[in-house]
């Protein structure tokens, strides 16, 4: 007979991201990669390099979009929206800008993406993100 004290099922004290670590820097680094790759693409006439640039840019832009989306639906809360009514608009535009960077080799699109990520970064900082979501010091 099975031990009646043994739990029959698991219940979830759930957290989407137990670590609770968020930082727009993650999106920014990927977006900077896109920016640099577009520069290299436009400066080069090496077809092999240019092809690789396109492939890597697609991948980095997709990661940028992912990081923006995670901030949007996991980090930001209703009270942040009250403080920043353009929060949804900004995140939406930033995601769209990341898609644009995927499609194009126009450096202006990469600049626009960086500008929008910096706006998200301002909201993250003003809502206490650096103190609340990053480790202040690693415990020994």
């Amino acid at each position: 007979m099975r031990n009646p004290l043994r739990p029959t099922r698991r219940v979830h004290a759930h957290c989407d991201i137990p670590c609770g670590v968020y930082d727009p820097e993650q999106a920014r680094i990927e977006a900077e990669s896109c920016y640099k790759i577009i520069e290299k693409y436009n400066a080069s006439s090496d077809e092999l390099l240019r092809t690789r640039c396109i492939a890597v840019k697609e991948e980095r832009a997709e990661l940028t979009k992912h990081h923006i989306d995670v901030l949007w639906h996991d980090y930001f809360k209703p009270e942040h929206l009250e403080k920043y009514p353009d929060l949804h608009e900004t995140c939406w535009k930033a995601s769209k800008a990341a898609s644009k960077v995927k499609q194009t080799t126009d450096i202006a699109a990469a600049k626009e993406l960086l500008t929008l990520i910096d706006k998200i970064d301002e909201m993250w900082k003003a809502t206490g993100g650096p103190e609340k979501t990053r480790l202040q010091a690693v415990a020994a």
């Binding site: 739990p7 029959t8 137990p18």
Partner: peptide, 8 residues
């Protein structure tokens, strides 16, 4: 009887 999973 149930088992807790997660830290929330």
């Amino acid at each position: 009887v149930v088992e807790v999973q997660g830290g929330s």
